[in-house]
Nucleic acid binder design. Structure first.
Length: 528
RNA sequence: GCGCUCGUAGCUCAAUUGGAUAGAGCAACGGACUUCGGAUCCGUAGGUUGUAGGUUCGACCCCUGUCGAGCGCACCA
């Protein structure tokens, strides 16, 4: 819809311009402040310029009115244009808003350590990533989703050690001495129990089996993580193992070396990340020869870029923000365009419980499991809460409030609108096909506004994806539902002389609600 | 101390990315024919956008200072 408008204006204007929505829908459907920027050039007042331009624009048949107001030019679309578009959308629901593009994107998100179940903080990145993936795919981007498994290094070792000690203490009844850092939490105790059943009691007897427990535990945790994700409808295209990539280190290292971006100091190897804005150079290989975590990420990003995507998106927890500079530097040093990598930060989620702050830390074991929240409020509500907020703002909510969010939940509000539409078709004893041919003309202003709102979905999706702000979609769905409810309360549908027109209008709203919900991973309810 | 992110109604968040009168929900208060399902709708109240400057036709948005919050500042991930 917007594209048709832009094309039409472009034809008569022959220059770049900004198209936006008027502050007030009664002014028109679209607007442009072009007269303001022309004012300087032409040395005329914006108001006079706007008036002159309006006449030119009126020649197009997609506009019913073009009016100047205080220098702004407002466009009102014609009913026949809106009707044609709506008929097409209703008949082609599955392709409504779908576009063709050639750009490929690699989207990496979650990538939580396989040392424990996902907690509520991970859920935010997970849900946002999944929604971006679904929306972007709908918009025609070829998106692959990927999860990077940190299955090498200290944290996994620590998992093995924690299982080992827990097994000795809880199962063998031996008193153990806990180190300063280890994984606590009930899942460790539970997992040690499973280890006993699958691997035998002997596994806790000898310290040499810690390595075995690490590997075994990591696999178990990964399974758990996958099922946590599946519970909210998230499935990844790829899982990439840090460990499996380690044999490519020489290859990546050689590139860095060739570009003179590493150096040796002491017995360590450093990368010159300072050259590209990092605070300091970073160690990539320790003095005992073990590569650091950064080395793993260098290999991984080398591997990513070798696969030749047009664009790369990483969703990271905000606590990793300090990491962006060094990874981008490394990508550049490897000979790639680091601007192709975009990092989205998902800000911390802080939980309250009865007003008391919850300190979330994987290591402390005092965290809220994503799966627990899903169990209590359901996947839809969890998704909706996280998708309603910009991902880069701190989010704080009280679990107790969250639990009682049922009738207050906007999801119910949206679903109610959707269910209402079905209900009214049933009441009228008509199907969508019955009313598809009806022309939407001579509509009241309210009806026309509702129609226009429903047709806006593709633009909203486009905007949400390109600004990486998924809350625009939830916001839109709430507003569209509100318009529907309002219209419903003010207009009698069944039995009125406009019945068929209104049904077609409602069908269009239903399409947008269904498609919109689907793209944020929520299925619309037919009945409630 | 340095860096990143953020600061908008009592609370949780929006604001077409520099545009027109800063908007929703919740909470509060007052209303809507025993209703095409009232899980809805209408109305009232609530704001110097943390704060002080600057940039310009125009600023919640950009720049500078300042205050406050969170997160980083590892050879952990």
């Amino acid at each position: 819809m917007k594209k048709s408008v832009i094309r039409s204006i472009q034809e008569s204007l022959q220059r770049e311009f900004i198209l936006e929505k008027p502050a007030n829908l009664s002014f028109g459907h679209y607007a442009t402040p072009i007269a303001f920027s022309l004012a300087k050039e032409l040395k005329k007042s914006p108001i006079a310029i706007a008036e002159e331009l309006c006449e030119k624009f009126l020649q197009s048949d997609i506009f019913q009115e073009v009016t100047p107001i205080k220098g702004y030019i407002n466009f009102k679309l014609s009913e026949s244009f809106l009707d044609k578009y709506a008929s097409w959308a209703i008949a082609n629901e599955n392709t409504f808003g779908i576009e063709e593009r050639n750009e490929s994107i690699l989207l990496e998100y979650v990538s939580a350590n396989p040392t424990g179940p996902l907690h509520i903080g991970h859920a935010r990145g997970a849900v946002v990533g999944d929604a971006l993936c679904k929306i972007g795919t709908h918009l025609g981007y070829k998106i692959d989703s990927e999860y990077y498994i940190n299955d090498a290094g200290n944290q996994v070792d620590l998992l093995g050690l924690s299982l080992f000690l827990s097994g000795r203490e809880q199962i063998l009844g031996i008193s153990v001495e806990w180190p300063a850092e280890f994984y606590r939490g009930e899942y460790i105790v539970d997992l040690a129990q499973v280890a006993k059943e699958e691997l035998g009691l002997g596994i806790f007897e000898n310290e040499e089996s810690i390595a075995t427990l690490s590997l075994w535990g990591k696999d178990k945790m990964l399974e758990l993580i996958k099922s946590n994700l599946a519970d909210v409808g998230i499935v990844f295209d790829n899982f990439v193992s840090e460990k499996a990539l380690y044999n490519k280190w020489d290859e990546s290292f050689e590139k860095l070396q060739k570009n003179n971006k590493t150096y040796k100091e002491g017995d360590k190897i450093w990368i010159r990340s300072t050259e590209l804005g990092d605070e300091k150079d970073r160690v990539v290989v320790r003095d005992d020869g073990r590569p650091t975590y950064l080395a793993g990420d260098i290999i991984y990003h080398d591997y990513k870029f070798q696969r030749g995507y047009d664009h790369y998106i990483n969703i990271w927890g905000a606590d990793h923000h300090g990491y962006i500079a060094r990874v981008k530097a490394a990508i550049n040093f490897l000979g790639y365009d680091e601007k192709k990598l975009e990092v989205i930060l998902a800000q911390m989620v802080s939980l309250l419980k009865g007003g008391e702050p919850y300190k979330m830390s994987k290591r402390a074991g005092n965290f809220i499991l994503m799966s627990d929240v899903v169990k209590e409020v359901g996947s839809d509500a969890l998704r909706f809460v996280f998708l309603s907020k910009k991902s880069d703002t701190h989010l704080e909510f009280d679990v107790d409030v969250f639990k009682q969010e049922d009738s207050n939940n906007p999801i119910f509000y949206i679903n109610y609108a959707h269910a209402r539409i079905n209900q009214i078709f049933a009441k009228a004893n008509k199907s969508v096909e019955d009313v598809l041919h009806v022309k939407l003309e001579n509509l009241s202003e309210d009806a026309q506004n509702l129609l226009f709102s429903a047709l806006l979905l593709p633009e909203v999706l486009d905007d949400a994806f390109h600004s990486r702000q998924v809350q625009k979609v939830t916001e839109y769905l709430k507003n569209l539902s509100a318009s529907l409810h309002k219209f419903y309360n003010e207009n009698r549908v069944v039995g009125s002389e406009d019945e068929e027109k209104f049904l077609k209008l409602f069908a269009m709203v239903g399409v947008s609600i269904r498609v919109g919900l689907k793209l944020i991973g929520i299925s619309a309810k037919e009945k409630m």
